[in-house]
Design a binder for these strands. Structure first.
Length: 740
DNA sequence: TTAGCCCACTCCCGT
DNA sequence: AGTGGGCTAA
């Protein structure tokens, strides 16, 4: 291989149309590199052009590349673009998500990794049910140890690359957590299942401990390319370092300003570590933005400039200033939704396509009010991030039967369907079964089937009937096609009959039929595609299909093609762009979220979230906030988000100075004391000098909103939400509060 | 002992 | 709004 720089020619169709910075990144010499790619700067284009260029200049063969992304969508897009620019077969290329690639490696080397060949993957819901079950068994108080927190703890440890024995625990509480962690891992091992984080950790350990395997892959993957590098957690970075070894090149593309997954272990610091660990000489910054007009970019730049911990980058565009950023102050959440509906109707009447418009919000709970308003206005919309196909109850039931066919020791799958459809196995029988399994230290399936050996004549009921059913399924499943197996699972189990007898079961029946269709196309599309992993064993299609179901939970909703508004969380919007974007709910407590105040550097991540949201817009951006909204079944009052103050006024257009009560709004301040009745048992309405919802000013804490009060006329205290200063209780006798 | 119904509870973001 | 626990009828 030559160490001469490869001369880029702008005649080359691969490189045509790239700007200087992009061209520099694509044609960098053989060395590890960090590309700081701002929002809308052509990141994916650079990544795929780099791959194509490396192959075309014969610096590497397609099989010598490893390209890692976070989402299946990004991986697919990369493959599509590579195929479009080069006449090569992408079949042997390793392009995929961290989880998908680790799964592939573990399937190929399952023995060395200590897993059964048909190990199953637990999604978050499965994982939670394992934890709950285990905690019951260990008699752990779920008040002191909420299962969700235990789950976060376990995943957090694994994301850091830690097993239970390696975790520090100096107090009884953390010692208990560690104990549950250890037992949980034992349980998973016994069941032959792996959760998401386990896929990565197990794969890391495999490579670390097994020198032959490690060296094999190190000498194969000379070039490692990583997308969204800022989202990698500690374990993922360690995994990458291990694969890169001393000699391979790593091409990392990322944007520290768009790191919004800290809550699940992402470490922006990996970017700085990468610089030192890999002796990075060149950092290429892609700052020219091809997406938005400059008013939008300037707003984004202004917001993000308030963050201290940045590598530093400023987006610019040669497009004009464009429209001002519009701000709307709503009276309440219904009013906000109504405003959005009215604007959309206007835009639509002017010819803007509905699918060009996105409604973004911080949390999924906010979508309901918007959906209601859109539904009433007869505007078609599509919500991303709801229940996905493979997460639906009826689908998970069907998959559970299929999982049992593949591996009956899977306790989670067994418990899901042992009594669904109901076959007379209640809580008492299950308790006895679990007791038996624990005594014999075996799986529930083994316990259930061993008690059966003696009597096998006559009509079976309850557990024996279930055991017989699964055995019959396994017998009939032998040698049949995948789609036939799905059909067999949903009919023999009685699932189909159960939903057919149900009044409202039509959708579920449709979904079950859809599962058969999914199996057909999976078999067609994937046959001979993934089953040839470096000459290793050919894993069966059922196991592949089940992995696929866990790793790619599937499309969010069926009606993809329809012209509809796009509703999603800010997190889900990363990487997408729209002509018009509405960001709603910009209030203190919601955005930035109140929980973020308790997290280290939580506020900076919230600001990055805001930055991501703003940079989704191409032409027109609406920012809205409401004085009150219904949240968690209670009315909440909030002051405008601090992020709004961070945008220079000359970029803004305030659509209203004061919220106007629209005729459609069904709430009024005068009703509020009654609605807040929960909190004002001892309060006296008449003596109340401040109404709930009243905006007030305080010398030290600034502006806030009264959210509740207590005490009597002589000794009244009010609770005020000061936003950035938090919630404060103030005694009216002493505190100097002025109404605004 | 099990099945089905009703009521209460929580809810940020997600591969 | 979806889930889980508790109660009741069989």
């Amino acid at each position: 291989m030559s160490h001469q720089p490869h001369h880029a020619s702008t005649q080359d169709p691969l490189l045509a149309g790239l700007n200087n910075k992009q061209l520099e990144a694509v044609t960098l010499p053989q060395q590890s590199a960090l590309i700081l790619a701002g929002a809308g700067s052509g990141k994916t284009r650079v990544l795929t052009a780099r791959i194509a260029w490396l192959i075309q200049t014969e610096q590497v063969s397609p099989t010598g590349l490893l390209a890692v992304t976070f989402t299946n969508k990004a991986a697919k897009e990369m493959l599509t673009r590579i195929t479009a620019s080069l006449p090569i077969n992408t079949r042997g290329m390793w392009v995929g998500t961290f989880h998908g690639l680790c799964n592939r490696l573990l399937r190929a080397h399952y023995r060395e990794a200590g897993l059964p060949a048909s190990f199953q993957i637990l999604d978050i819901a499965d994982q939670l049910s394992v934890i709950k079950r285990l905690m019951k068994l260990l008699n752990v108080d779920d008040e002191k140890f909420p299962p969700k927190q235990v789950q976060n703890y376990i995943n957090g440890c694994k994301d850091e690359g830690l097993r239970a024995h390696a975790v520090d625990a100096y107090d009884p509480h953390s010692q208990k957590l560690r104990e549950i962690f250890e037992e949980y891992d034992k349980q998973c091992q016994r069941d032959g299942v792996a959760d998401f984080a386990e896929l990565l950790l197990r794969c890391y350990e495999l490579l670390e401990r097994n020198t032959n395997i490690r060296q094999h892959y190190q000498s194969r993957f000379r070039y490692i390319l990583v997308d969204e590098f800022q989202d990698t957690n500690r374990l993922q970075y360690q995994w990458l370092k291990l694969l890169a070894g001393k000699d391979n090149c790593m091409f990392a593309v990322g944007d520290d300003d768009q790191s919004i997954y800290g809550f699940r272990g992402a470490r922006v610091g990996n970017m700085r570590d990468f610089e030192t660990d890999f002796h990075i000489q060149t950092i290429v910054k892609l700052e020219e933005n091809y997406r938005s007009h400059s008013n939008i970019l300037d707003a984004a730049n202004a917001i993000i400039s308030h963050n201290k911990n940045r590598l530093g980058k400023n987006l610019w565009t040669s497009a004009g200033a464009g429209e001002p950023v519009r701000i709307y102050q709503a009276y309440n959440d219904n009013d906000e939704a109504q405003f959005i509906v009215d604007e959309i109707k206007m835009l639509h009447a002017e010819g803007m396509g509905l699918s060009e418009i996105a409604l973004l919000y911080r949390s999924n709970a906010q979508s309901r009010v918007l959906e209601h308003a859109l539904f009433s206005a007869n505007l078609p919309y599509r919500v991303y991030g709801g229940l996905r196909f493979f997460e639906r109850a009826e689908i998970k039931h069907a998959l559970a039967y299929m999982r049992l066919i593949a591996n009956a020791n899977d306790d989670t799958a067994l418990l899901r369907v042992i009594n669904f459809p109901t076959r007379g196995i209640g809580a008492r029988s299950l308790e006895q079964l679990q007791e038996a399994a624990r005594a014999a230290n075996c799986s529930l399936w083994q316990a259930a089937s061993s008690s059966l050996k003696t009597e096998d004549s006559g009509q079976k009921k309850g557990i024996p009937a279930f055991v017989a059913l699964i055995r019959a399924m396994v017998n009939q499943a032998y040698g049949i096609k995948l789609s036939e197996l799905v059909e067999l699972a949903i009919t023999m189990s009685g699932l189909m009959a159960h939903y057919e007898s149900e009044k409202e079961g039509e959708d579920r029946i449709e979904n079950l039929k859809e599962l058969v269709t999914a199996a057909v196309s999976f078999a067609n599309q994937d046959f001979g595609n993934h089953n040839n992993v470096d000459g290793e064993t050919e894993q069966d299609l059922l196991t592949q299909f089940l992995s696929h179901a866990s790793l790619e939970a599937g499309e969010h909703q069926a009606d993809v093609g329809r012209e509809a508004l796009q509703l999603m969380t800010v997190h889900a919007s990363k990487g997408l762009e729209f002509k018009t974007v509405f960001i709603s709910g910009l209030e203190e407590g919601l955005c930035p979220h109140e929980q973020s105040a308790y997290e280290a550097s939580g506020l900076e991540e919230e600001r990055r979230l805001m930055y991501v949201a703003v940079t989704r817009a191409r032409q027109r951006l609406y920012l809205s906030h409401a004085q009150s909204r219904m949240l968690h079944g209670q009315v909440r009052y909030g002051i405008p988000s601090r992020f709004l103050d961070e945008i220079p006024d000359e970029l803004l257009k305030h659509l209203n100075s004061k919220p106007v009560v629209k005729s459609g709004s069904n709430r009024d301040y005068s009703e509020l004391p009654a609605m807040m009745s929960k909190q004002q048992s001892s309060g006296q309405k008449n003596a109340m000098p401040w109404k709930i919802g009243q905006q007030v000013a305080h010398a030290k804490f600034g502006n806030g909103v009264v959210v509740s009060y207590e005490g009597n006329a002589n000794d009244m205290r009010v609770q005020v939400n000061f936003g950035r200063e938090g919630l404060k209780w103030l005694a009216l006798e002493f505190a100097k509060l002025n109404p605004i």
